[in-house]
Design a protein around this nucleic acid. Structure first.
Lengths: 246, 246
DNA sequence: TCGAATTTGTGCGTATGTATC
DNA sequence: GGATACATACGCACAAATTCG
């Protein structure tokens, strides 16, 4: 066993101290912490750097280091609720009494290899691509990009997901207007780190965990995919629930 | 607009360079990188520190900095496959041809507030607690802790989840031996950072993202919970899939 | 309003330890 | 063993932000 370097030992000591402190409490300055452990202030600063990265401490330039507050209250999204006319996002935020809204932008595009495979169409086929940014209390909390094959929705009034009389009702309900029963989607859920672009959009620090969901709706009669989407959610604000208790 | 400090500008420059390099390529040493940007080696080292934290670069002590390889090939776990006699973990690893195994440890315990609420029993009631460590090719990839109320399984041969003739067949199949139809579980999925203990057990660096799943099985006849579990999976190795394509 | 003190952020140059080649 | 390279630490300096009298 090799002993950890001083800056890690100091960080370890601080973790124990922080557990017993109320959020918002001010921590010793780097110079004082250095004296307590007989190291240079730069080493104490590096120990704080570790804890800031871990989310236990926040540092305010010129002011000091402070115990970080509790996790922000979590917003729930409950998926797989057949029969609900609202989109999953709307279900999630209204359950919490929060105010939800979204911005969107649609454009026709061609399917790249990944999207084509997920939709079961030829690479380069025409699709309607829509980018969403979902806001809760004016804070972006969820990003989504959806692709729908134009072969399915083309020539109909529902071609634009969020325009006209059918805005914001979700894919399942909108497809029912075309006489299709899309049922429950298939969702593949991953945990990964936010890219820099995603971190910027979501207002979180880079490297913070996000839920990444690859969702595809199928027409149950034909078995063809009618919509696929990449959904990115803040890990600290969302939990995705599957199934219902009997 | 304030200009970023040199160490961030160097990191930004390196990001662009790395994009055009094959994985595994060696990057300039800290001293050489410092000369290229007219800064001290310590500053160049700090730039690398940022990129290592972002996962773009790996550093080998005494050797150098290298372009990080692509994501490790992902192992799939497909949940909600009614009728499969194997446990979800076994389904996941065998689909990939990998060798899966697990260690476990069971003991009776009392339900704390959280577990009691999830199982719908009184706080302090007796439960069978089992801790699992799942291994794929001798590498731990998944941690789980399961609780079953003794009021359900007590006095029966299936009281120990992984002992006797019923080892490793999963909760659903084992409960069927008691004449119960447990159906699909309810799963709440989160993305969060690994705790230090989890990071150590899973062999990943602290702060790396993990999938955290809170799973509960219910007896469909009575509606009572028969098992609840906390499951932690490496974010870079697992994807949890819900639903099947029609 | 101003200025001094405090605190963090960043950088330099150097030294030592240790891992790799 | 020797050369190279990273990891860590020291002490100092200056900049930037905050705090407070």
């Amino acid at each position: 066993m090799s002993k950890p370097p001083p800056y890690l030992r100091i960080a370890e000591d601080l973790r124990g101290r922080i557990m017993a402190l109320p959020p918002g409490d001010k921590l010793p300055s780097t110079t004082e912490l250095g004296k307590q452990h007989s190291v240079a202030p730069s080493v104490a600063g590096r120990a704080y750097q570790v804890l800031v990265q871990e989310g236990l401490v926040i540092s305010r330039h010129g002011s000091g280091h402070y115990v970080r507050g509790m996790e922000t209250p979590e917003v729930l999204v409950r998926r797989h609720q057949r029969g609900s006319p609202d989109s999953p996002f709307a279900v999630g935020v209204t359950q919490q009494g929060a105010v939800g809204s979204w911005r969107h932008e649609s454009a026709t595009a061609t399917a790249d290899g990944s999207v084509a495979e997920r939709l079961g169409i030829a690479e380069g086929a025409a699709v309607m691509r829509t980018d969403y940014v979902y806001l809760a209390e004016d804070q972006p909390v969820q990003l989504a990009t959806s692709w729908e094959p134009l072969a399915v929705t083309g020539q109909s009034a529902v071609v634009l997901p969020e325009a006209g009389p059918h805005a914001g009702i979700g894919v399942a309900a909108r497809m029912q207007l075309l006489g299709m029963d899309v049922g429950d989607p298939v969702e593949a859920v991953r945990a990964r780190s936010a890219s820099r672009a995603e971190a910027h959009s979501l207002g979180v620090s880079p490297q913070s965990p996000v839920l990444s969901i690859e969702r595809t709706y199928y027409d149950q009669a034909s078995g063809r995919a009618v919509e696929t989407a990449d959904i990115v959610l803040r890990g600290d604000r969302w939990v995705s629930v599957y199934g219902r208790r009997p």
